[in-house]
Amino acid sequence: MKKVNKRVIPGFGLSMGVTLSLLSIIVIIPLASLVVFTSQMSLSDILKTITRDRVVASFEVSFLTAFIASAINAVMGVVLAWVLVRYDFPFKRIVDGMIELPFALPTAVAGIALTSLTSDQGIIGKFFAKFGIKIAYTRIGIVVALVFIGIPFVVRSVQPVLEKLDGSFEEAAGVMGASRARIFRKVIFPEIRPAVFTGFGLALGRCIGEYGSVVFIAGNMPFKTEITPLIIMSELQEYDYASATAIALVMLLFAFLLLFAVNLIQSRNAKILKGG
């Protein structure tokens, strides 16, 4: 039953060994300790923790703001990707490079910068205050921070698809008299749809877990602007590891479901990119 000869390239044992040992130390053992810790808790305790009013309210705040922010990014992401792929304009390369800023800028810095911009004394905050709209320390502020965090996801997943898109279908549709809006809806959008959903899903996952940028701008009022990661954080600071773990399990479950959905869409998307 020896299949050694099937592997011509050397180094399987060594590289598999290094990969698995590092993976175990960094990821598997810590995750396993979460499982072990959870198994010591009773189901009713977990349920009691995650149905506390304050926790349920935080789920609502987190999911709602992350969803709105990702939806805004889905729309703006398509617009940005379209503009960057199809048009030429001054400073295009700089705009293209800027898209990645939210990945490079530490979230805490983004958080305090956005907070000071949108508070009553900030430029943007002052402007909206005239209309009676408060941004910082409200749910709108959380959405603003999450929009910032999520910008690159949709753009970077739609951009390659648009670049590979065959222009001849659009031309054909145009020659046959379809309006531009109709061409976009019927010809282009179906092609980029999986990429938009992928980007949306990735942004949503990131936004729900986001902590650094949100804690500054949110004001963190219980029931109003308190996000779920912050609740986990405060449970940890009170050494209430059981509650922290119970709430984290809900977030993990959601993250894995989302990842699963994104992977499903992505494998279909890969086929489009390969032209299959």
Partner: peptide, 23 residues
């Protein structure tokens, strides 16, 4: 294996901290 490798980027940073505290 590839799924396990991707886990760190899918969980919230707070949960990353939590699992190390638990460990």
């Amino acid at each position: 294996l590839t799924t396990l490798i991707d886990i760190p980027v899918t969980v919230s940073p707070i949960i990353a901290g939590l699992i190390y505290v638990l460990t």
